[in-house]
Design a protein around this nucleic acid. Structure first.
Lengths: 275, 275
DNA sequence: TAGTGGTCTAGACCACAAT
DNA sequence: TTGTGGTCTAGACCACTAC
């Protein structure tokens, strides 16, 4: 019969998607609400069920709806936690992840597994070591309300940690403390931590580990922790983007005439100086 | 005939997708290569064309392939630039975006449009001003090799910039300079810049503005620039995640509380020190 | 013009959730 | 059991690319 474009413009599936998207974004349909059934949409728009399904595919891939077999299609909820780098890289020996979750009325939990491992090319180049060098590897899985939210794999250079209290990250009196207090405790206080952030749709393995729904990208962070001369640690962090936002703060150094650079001086007051 | 699961396990479309995904990720099919045609896949897997298309939908939504009508399906290329916060928020009055692009052998270009604007609730709360206050708004579109890559909308508090040389961000001798040198020039050197990073699939408007392909999430950054007492600026930044990665560096302050400094001391295995 | 991918129909059966 | 969404077939026509 009528093949595709009926009265208006564009394709039928896009018209259906646009109609529903409007209702979702303008609040007519609210998070958790049920959309019309596929059959109702077939009747409303006078098209085949495949077309309706294609329209719902779009909305699902946009992260706007959840489709529950046998139940219906609902508007997806979004209520992320915030991962603050400043919390993770401060001196206090608390667990920043737990703090973030509890502050948002969620229940945090994590598992960890530490073992010796030999590194591949990628980690080797980040640590400045030879491929195959033995390092201390720790895998973490962090849960929010029993839902996996973040995967971390950390590699620590044994040259610096071997035989110290922090050789095993989750043992000893600094178990669970952040990188900064741990390495400070062995006289190797980090001077800089660098995060490289990449974003893409999840791989099937990540989809499974994080129980990710369609339309939810993952955030991948490669971190390196260093002192002036050495690289202490590197880590791969995988985050489900529907559960976390990131917050990064950058401290701007005051202008210190031309003589001195920023060294061990607690940030002084910023005078209105000319350039 | 045979409805779905033939010999092996799972659904046919997932088997097809998995076979192709393997070839892409293990390098049998390389970026730019053409996949088999839909008809060839129909013949190979002995299923209907709809099922083959569903499999390709998956790969497209994973960002792995491009589908070009009349030509074929190809393996997508990924070669992002790096947005370094340290570059954007430093003192040098250069254009960091151009520098990043040129370093990667790409051609940068951007447009800008500055005007007075009255702010809505979101920007108002970020600037600590009343809704409807007049601010200086500037919209930027940044292109890499003539492809739009980043949208920035910046709102500057006129209370501080009115009548100064930086009142219009893209005029005067500091045109195009970063936030730090510009505000420093009027005696309001920023002390902290905070970025909140959110990730999700693109809205249709964003898809169009950034000419985004299926399976490419957007990165949304809300930035605020402040001195100790005041909020100077806030901005919304939208980035196509296939064109940019982010790099954030965090400087760890030396310990100044006690006389203890870490510094160049190669201190190996020493006993546990109190934090 | 030939061949590619894009949209659509009409109908079938399966899997899961609610009752 | 009923109704929801999930997978699949077989076939049609449209839109674009390359030759």
């Amino acid at each position: 019969m009528k093949p595709m474009d009926t009265p208006d413009a564009g394709h039928m599936y896009e018209r259906i998607a646009a109609a529903l998207r409007d209702q979702i974004t303008n609040g007519t349909l609210r998070p958790g609400d049920r959309l019309p059934t596929q059959q109702e949409l077939v009747d409303t728009f006078g098209c085949s069920r495949q077309v309706v399904r294609f329209a719902l595919d779009l909305l699902e891939n946009e992260g706007l709806v959840d489709r529950i077999q046998g139940f219906g299609t609902t508007v997806r909820k979004y209520d992320p936690l915030v991962r603050r780098s400043a919390l993770h890289y401060r001196d206090m020996p608390n667990a920043p992840f737990a703090e973030e979750a509890l502050a948002a009325q969620r229940t945090p939990r994590y598992t960890h597994h530490t073992r010796l491992d030999r590194i591949g090319p990628d980690v080797a180049s980040r640590l400045g070591l030879e491929v195959g060098t033995e390092v201390m590897r720790t895998d973490y899985v962090s849960y929010v309300d029993d839902q996996p939210a973040m995967l971390v794999t950390s590699y620590e250079n044994l040259e610096y940690t071997r035989g110290t209290v922090i050789e095993k990250p989750e043992e000893g009196y600094l178990a669970g403390a952040g990188l900064v207090p741990r390495f400070t405790a062995i006289g190797r206080r980090p001077t800089k931590i660098t995060e490289r952030v990449r974003v893409r749709p999840p791989r099937p393995a990540e989809e499974e580990m994080l129980r990710i729904k369609p339309g939810v990208p993952v955030i991948l962070i490669s971190r390196t922790t260093q002192t002036r001369e050495t690289i202490l640690e590197t880590a791969d962090i995988i985050i489900a983007s529907n559960l976390f936002e990131l917050e990064n703060s950058f401290v701007i150094e005051p202008l210190v005439s031309t003589l001195e650079q920023q060294h061990e001086r607690p940030a002084s007051q910023d005078g209105p100086l000319s350039v």
